[in-house]
């Protein structure tokens, strides 16, 4: 059920990318897609009644292993977030440059290349 919601969010993002005409809105759509995937990734590691996967002195190792959530998806999400930051910054920079050259954010007016 929760996974479906993530996929729904992903679809909303994709819809935004495909239908919007404003460069900034397209970038926002892209962001929504990426967040949906990140949420899905976090939920993959979810465990009912889980604890933070940080080893503590007071906690016996067996109990820790039995209860801690999967830390690998969290590391993956962190990596994905770093990549998203880079992409976001680059896309914003290109969008600003495009605005400088064309004087508009409307993608239907930015059409020099065809064929």
């Amino acid at each position: 059920m929760v996974y479906t919601l993530c996929l729904l969010l992903f679809m909303i993002g994709l819809y935004g990318v495909l239908t919007q005409k404003n460069l900034i809105k397209i970038i926002i759509g892209l962001g929504i897609m990426e967040y949906a995937v990140n949420m899905l990734l976090i939920m993959v590691g979810y465990r009912h009644d889980g604890i933070v996967p940080i080893l503590d002195r007071a906690m016996p190792l067996d109990e820790f292993l039995a209860r801690a959530v999967d830390p690998l998806p969290q590391a993956m999400v962190l990596t994905a977030i770093v990549i998203n930051v880079a992409v976001l910054a680059l896309s914003i920079a290109i969008a600003m440059r495009l605005y400088q050259k064309y004087g508009t954010y409307d993608i239907t007016e930015i059409r020099q290349l065809r064929g």
Binding site: V85, A93, Y99, Q100, G103
Partner: peptide, 23 residues
């Protein structure tokens, strides 16, 4: 990196002179 990204994007000013837009 984050400081630079924020600073560069935040300190840019756009001015419009007729058709020409300057950063």
């Amino acid at each position: 990196s984050l400081f630079l990204i924020f600073f560069i994007l935040a300190s840019l000013r756009m001015t419009r002179k007729g058709d020409k837009i300057e950063f």
